[in-house]
Write a protein that binds this DNA or RNA. Structure first.
Lengths: 128, 128
DNA sequence: TGTATAGTTAGCTTCATGGCTAACCAATTA
DNA sequence: TAATTGGTTAGCCATGAAGCTAACTATACA
């Protein structure tokens, strides 16, 4: 598990680049060699390798060299770690929305109570 | 909705910075002025404003100025858009795992069938 | 009207990122 | 053993990101 939280920086930074997102997407479908991964991209190999390296230091990708070919695979943990972050934020966000909604409901009820006391003023007024 | 997909670059880049993630987290709990947001950070205001601006152009945050105070709020759409990306990747990833598992099961069965033919070799061998 | 407050603009520095070429191993294969 | 293939290292360049200060605008308050 390690400290995934502190590496959110690197994970999000890694995913901020379209080339690297494409690599991740490709690796979701299964492992591949550096050459296979690089093929669809119009980019010099050393440049491409930098992307691989960024993905590796972020923990999103692991690789292993056997013979002269390096095989890359996705490391799901990091992806899940990032996804968790969103879910945590959403939890807070939704809790707030719930509270807000409750607040609005309360206002609404109060308004209705007031309206019940002064039925003549409940019709449309004007403007928004 | 617009083109959230093409702005994943900006969303992830925005979230790659701890200051900006903290701002997002703070805004999950409700809107706040620039000053309130900036307060916990030991950073010059212009520097901080850059972060706000990055968050705004990424679509994660919206702001509005009334009088001399600018109020910021979270724009959930962008967050959800980014979360969706993870879920899509996970879907592909899990589909692959399922296929892989099926493959492993197949191998296992084949092995068992082979083992049934040569029962003497099925005991422990050594090492991992 | 004068002063404090809340942001904003401009402009500077420093460092990281993303790209390139050229040259270089180290396995394979002929 | 020689040539090819797959990747790696080193080093360069241009751009952009993240921080700063100083000076400015515009609202609110006394």
């Amino acid at each position: 598990m390690a400290n995934q939280l502190s590496s959110l920086d690197q994970i999000f930074a890694a995913l901020a680049d379209p080339t690297r997102r494409a690599i991740v997407m490709r690796l979701c479908a299964g492992e591949a060699s550096v050459g296979e991964l690089a093929d669809p991209f119009d980019m010099a190999l050393p440049s491409f390798m930098k992307h691989i390296h960024v993905l590796e230091t972020s923990g999103l990708v692991q690789s292993e060299k056997s013979g002269r070919v390096r095989t890359c695979r996705l490391s799901a943990d990091a992806l899940v770690g990032a996804e968790d972050w969103f879910q945590q934020q959403r939890a807070v966000w939704e809790a707030r929305l719930d509270r807000f909604e409750a607040y609005v409901m309360k206002l609404k009820k109060e308004k209705e109570r007031t309206a019940a006391k002064r039925p003549s003023r409940t019709t449309k007024r004007k403007g928004s």
